[in-house]
Write a protein that binds this DNA or RNA. Structure first.
Length: 731
RNA sequence: GCUGCUGUAGCUCAGUGGUAGAGCACUUCCUUGGUAAGGAAGAGGUCAUGGGUUCAAGUCCCAUCAGCAGCUCCA
């Protein structure tokens, strides 16, 4: 007999061949029908899995999973992936299966198949799935040893599965399979008892994916689907997907006229339209003011820097592929650049090409006399590099740090000047792959709210504390209160890190201490540090539950070394400072894009590009409306008057659609009493108030940076908790 | 960068190889009103670009560019 412990603590005895299903049957036949799977401890298993294998002396902790358990939905979706794979195999010959896991809100399956699927095929696939589901055949588990498994997969012509068994699963002695009708798949499970449990499903989309994530490897077709226990649930989900789409900053940005990406300017190049620029400048002004309070000093630096500057910093040519190519003042610059790269390439430079290079140099008027073909590759490269150093080459700056390091070096520094905090809203350019570009969230030209703090090792802790405080203050000022910090530390086993052991230890301990005393939710991630120093990244959750990596603080032992930065200490000796990179917003583009989605375009009063729309009842009231506009402008508000010959209903509708926080409706009555019939975008009519009262009430909302949401936050389960975008603007 | 899809008016989109369409926005006129759309008229197009097939191409084919989704990448 098996001893089984139920969730309420009772222990029941069952025969040795008991399964979760048989246990459920003992409790009641309705429960048995509802069982989807079971949980033994933390392990989710099939409802038909014999419990005996989990016996270890103590009573087996068993929990039956029904439709109500979130874990059951995952099981359902994984089974749905099998059903979809089965359907696709029926429709198309020569399908090779890859992996078919569940994801948030659904599942996918990767296939290698000769014909290209497209959306028109979905109906066919869904129809075939429906047939399979209707038959409600059971999922049957069985295990085979390695040899048998490979044989079975070979027989079924599942070459990817064979490969996976031989590589990824090399350490497994026995392998699990599931059979459902004619369909057999290598699978760990668990599965629903039978396909009839799938009550709602839909093939969602198709996309490319790589076998085992290798971009150079085989490209597969990935079919996404979703599955639910009821059509109603699925409907709700599909509506929510629509809702999330409506928050898309690209859609809202266009509708509200915030920004534009014009393909004529270039992909990934963002044009800030007046309203978007308004929001950005409000954020910049706010942060600038806070930084000035905290002892930062503004600096400016040009958008270009000599290539040598980035050679010193180590960014060139290391990140060459994601930088815009260098600008050459001399016609031969690009030629010599390509020449060197071919000389240094694995394939080497064929003699014929070398002759062509030399001729081209002559044509361009930059013949390099010292260059001799009989010299070694190293010597020839050196000659070309010597030429390069004599001719100007510039890089559009991919980061601001080298410039700021030069500002530090502009004069001898004393310990008395430290910490030196230099800040700049610095625009940088990165040549991101075209497929990575995404609205404002991933662009090729971006402005970092960048600062570099140069300090002594002993000042690191206090500077880090101040930076954390600033970042929190910034996030909370826009209503982002749900965030955690990832503290990235060294991998103790690796020796790739620059900087002394002692400094690393001190720095890591200091960062940890600050985070602990801050009471922030943080987690340390060993081995995630950059080679040049530990860092702390802020992971922020927006109002619909998506996670964003925003602000970052990074310690750097590398650049001070490379740029030979030094200061004179109290001991009259030279010392090397520590550099701290930090950016509370990350980049203005990304932050405003994120905020647009967070607020769904309805920016709070302190950030709204237009705060008040004055709506005169008719043209008779236009004069009073214009008078009011002046009063609002004088009081510092962003206000416009709707002077159109339209009805007030239309004016209000337009203001609502434009998400303007307040509307001032004025007619003869208000003009008479010097008052305003105030309307709140969220609450509706607030009644008629004297002008002075409205001005002070709205000013208060601005000064307090009050955040008000129209709908209750998180009314539904967070959509897509997959990390929404994890771009980091690291240095 | 890879795979797939898409590209028609400012926006959202119809469009069957045979004369380029709608709604909203815009302009003008009428209307002068009380909290989410008053009415009428007008203007607006090299159907992304370049080739090709065809008597005939927005429509079919190819290439390029751009956008979207996913993958890979992100100092």
């Amino acid at each position: 007999m098996l001893e089984i412990k139920l969730p309420d603590g009772t222990i029941v005895s069952h025969p040795d061949d008991a399964t979760p299903l048989s246990v459920a049957e003992k409790i009641g036949s309705r429960l048995a029908k509802a069982v989807i799977a079971a949980k033994i401890g933390d392990l989710i298993v099939d409802a038909t899995r014999p419990l005996k294998s989990f016996a270890n002396g103590a009573p087996i902790p068993l929990r039956l999973l029904t439709e109500k358990d979130p874990e059951a939905l995952d099981v359902l979706r994984h089974s749905s992936a099998h059903v979809m794979a089965r359907a696709i195999m029926r429709i198309y010959p020569n399908v090779s299966l890859a992996f078919g896991p569940t994801i948030t809100n659904g599942f996918y399956y990767d296939f290698d198949l000769p014909q290209k699927l497209n959306e028109d095929d979905f109906a066919k696939i869904e129809a075939e799935m429906a047939k399979i589901i209707e038959l409600a055949e059971p999922f049957e588990q069985f295990s085979l040893d390695r040899t048998q498994s490979v044989e079975l997969c070979r027989d079924m012509k599942q070459t990817l599965k064979v490969e996976h068994i031989e590589t990824g699963l090399a350490s497994h002695e026995s392998l699990g399979f599931y059979r459902q009708g004619e369909f057999v798949d290598l699978c760990r499970g668990p599965h629903i008892p039978d396909a009839g449990r799938i009550k709602a499903f839909k093939v969602m989309s198709i996309a490319g994916a790589y076998w085992k994530g290798d971009a150079d490897g085989l490209q597969l077709q990935r079919v996404y689907g979703t599955a639910w226990f009821s059509p109603k649930d699925m409907q709700a989900h599909l509506e929510q997907v629509e809702e999330a789409k409506k928050r898309d900053h690209r859609v809202i940005g266009k509708r509200l006229g915030l920004f534009q990406i014009s393909s004529e300017v270039g992909p990934g190049m963002c044009l800030w339209l007046p309203k978007g620029a308004r929001i950005r400048s409000l954020l910049e002004d706010f942060l600038r003011k806070e930084m000035l309070k905290r002892g930062y000093e503004p600096v400016y630096s040009p958008h270009l820097g000599r290539v040598e500057l980035y050679e010193t910093s180590g960014h060139f040519p290391y990140y060459r592929d994601s930088q815009f190519p260098p600008l050459f003042v001399n016609d031969g610059g690009a030629l010599v650049d390509g020449w060197i790269r071919r000389l240094e390439s694995k394939e080497g430079l064929p003699a014929a090409h070398e002759q062509a290079f030399m001729q081209a140099a002559e044509v361009l008027g930059c013949e390099i006399k010292e260059y001799k073909v009989e010299q070694s590759v190293a010597e020839r490269t050196a000659v070309l590099q010597a030429w390069q150093r004599l001719h100007e080459r510039y890089l559009v700056k991919p980061m601001n740090c080298p410039h700021h390091a030069q500002i530090f070096k502009a004069m001898p520094r004393s310990y008395k000047q430290l910490p030196l905090r230099l800040f700049e809203f610095g625009t940088v350019y990165r040549f991101e792959q075209t497929g990575e570009l995404n609205g404002m969230l991933r662009v090729r030209g971006l402005t970092q709210d960048d600062a570099h703090i140069f300090c002594t090792q002993d000042q690191v802790e206090q500077e880090f504390r101040n930076t954390i405080e600033l970042t929190r203050m910034v996030l909370e000022s826009v209503g982002l209160k749900d965030y955690r910090v990832q503290l990235s530390l060294r991998d103790p086993k690796s020796d790739k890190y620059v900087g002394s052991e002692e400094n690393w230890q001190k720095a890591e301990a200091a960062l940890r201490r600050v985070l602990e005393e801050s009471g922030l939710n943080f987690q340390a991630a060993e081995g995630e540090a950059a080679f040049y120093g530990p860092k702390a990244d802020f992971m922020v959750r927006d109002c619909i539950g998506r996670q964003w990596q925003l602000g970052t603080v990074q310690l750097d032992y590398n650049l001070p070394e490379r740029f030979q930065l030094e200061y004179i200490g109290s001991d009259n000796k030279t010392h090397r400072p520590v550099m701290i990179h930090r950016a509370p917003f990350g980049s203005m583009e990304r932050f405003v894009g994120m905020l647009t989605e967070h607020f769904a375009g309805a920016f709070p009063m302190w950030l709204a590009p237009e705060q008040v729309r004055i709506c005169p009842l008719s043209e008779k009231s236009n004069d009073y409306a214009l008078e009011l506009e002046k009063q609002f402008l004088d009081a510092g508000f962003r206000v416009t008057v709707d002077l159109r010959g339209a009805k007030v209903q239309a004016k209000i509708r337009d203001a609502q659609v434009e998400l303007i926080p307040y509307m001032a409706v004025v007619g003869p009555r208000e003009a008479e009493t010097r008052s305003i019939a105030l309307r709140d975008r969220i609450e509706g009519e607030l009644g008629t108030k004297p002008v002075a009262e409205v001005l002070s009430m709205l000013a208060e909302e601005v000064n307090q940076r009050r955040i008000r949401f129209a709908v209750q936050k998180e009314t539904t389960e967070p959509e897509q908790p997959k990390v929404a975008e994890t771009e980091s603007h690291e240095y």
